[in-house]
Amino acid sequence: MKFCYAFLLLSMFSCFQTTRNCSDYRTGEFYSEVTIDGETYTSKFKRTDKLQIETYNSKIDSSSLRWINDCEVVFRTINPKNMAERKDIHLKILTTTDSSYTYEYSYVGETKKQKGVAYRMK
């Protein structure tokens, strides 16, 4: 009887696997939404395999990319203007759909993470 309950429990969890087709989002044009303390911030960016150019509040930032695997990347600001911009950012894609992905990010070495959603523009 215990075997039946264990099988039923495992069957239930296998139905809720998250989809991660991360390689579909390695390059392209996107816009992103992040909510911090109840306020939503948006940005647009274009990503190649080694470079990301982002526009936020009419400012353009460029970062070099180092892919750890298909779902994780580290960003390094190319021309940092202050100490905060000198910190690398680690981003991990958590789930994907046919037109978006959910991600979490943080400064490398820090435990506090933020979540956001990026949508494909084209």
Rank of each mutant, 00 (worst) to 15 (best):
L51Y: 15
S106L: 12
S63I: 00
D37T: 09
F75L: 12
S63V: 02
D24R: 01
Y119W: 10
S11A: 14
Y31G: 03
V108G: 09
K46N: 12
T95M: 13
F3V: 13
Y119S: 08
M83Q: 05
G38T: 12
F45I: 02
K122N: 08
I68T: 02
S58L: 09
I60K: 07
Y105A: 09
I60M: 10
K81Y: 08
T97R: 05
R120D: 04
N57W: 03
D70A: 00
R26Y: 01
Y107M: 09
M12T: 13
K81Q: 11
K87C: 14
L10D: 05
K92V: 04
E72L: 02
S62T: 11
R47L: 02
M1T: 06
T35S: 15
I60Q: 09
S11F: 14
N21C: 01
F7M: 10
T18Q: 05
M121E: 07
F45G: 02
F3C: 10
G38P: 00
K44Q: 13
S100K: 03
E85R: 13
I78H: 05
K92M: 10
K113V: 14
M83N: 09
Y119P: 06
V117M: 03
V34Y: 03
A118P: 07
G109R: 15
N79I: 13
A84C: 11
E104Q: 10
M121K: 07
I78N: 10
G109I: 15
C4L: 13
K87W: 14
T27A: 06
Y119R: 02
E85N: 10
T40I: 07
K122G: 08
T55H: 03
F75E: 05
D88S: 15
N79C: 06
Y5L: 07
V117W: 03
T111L: 11
C22Q: 01
R20V: 09
T18C: 05
P80N: 11
Y25F: 06
T19V: 04
I78W: 08
I53F: 02
T102I: 10
C15K: 07
A6I: 13
L91W: 01
P80M: 11
K44G: 07
K59M: 11
G109A: 12
F30A: 09
I93P: 10
L10E: 12
Y56M: 08
W67K: 04
L10V: 12
L65N: 06
K59H: 10
K87F: 14
G116D: 08
E39F: 04
I36W: 15
T97C: 04
A6C: 13
M12Y: 14
E72C: 07
I89W: 15
E85Y: 08
S23W: 00
V74D: 00
D24Q: 00
E110D: 14
D61L: 13
V74L: 04
F13V: 07
T35V: 15
I60C: 06
T97A: 08
T18E: 06
Y105N: 13
I93W: 01
K44N: 12
E72M: 08
S58I: 06
G38I: 09
Y105D: 11
K46Q: 14
N21Y: 00
Y107S: 15
L65P: 01
W67F: 02
S99E: 07
S58C: 08
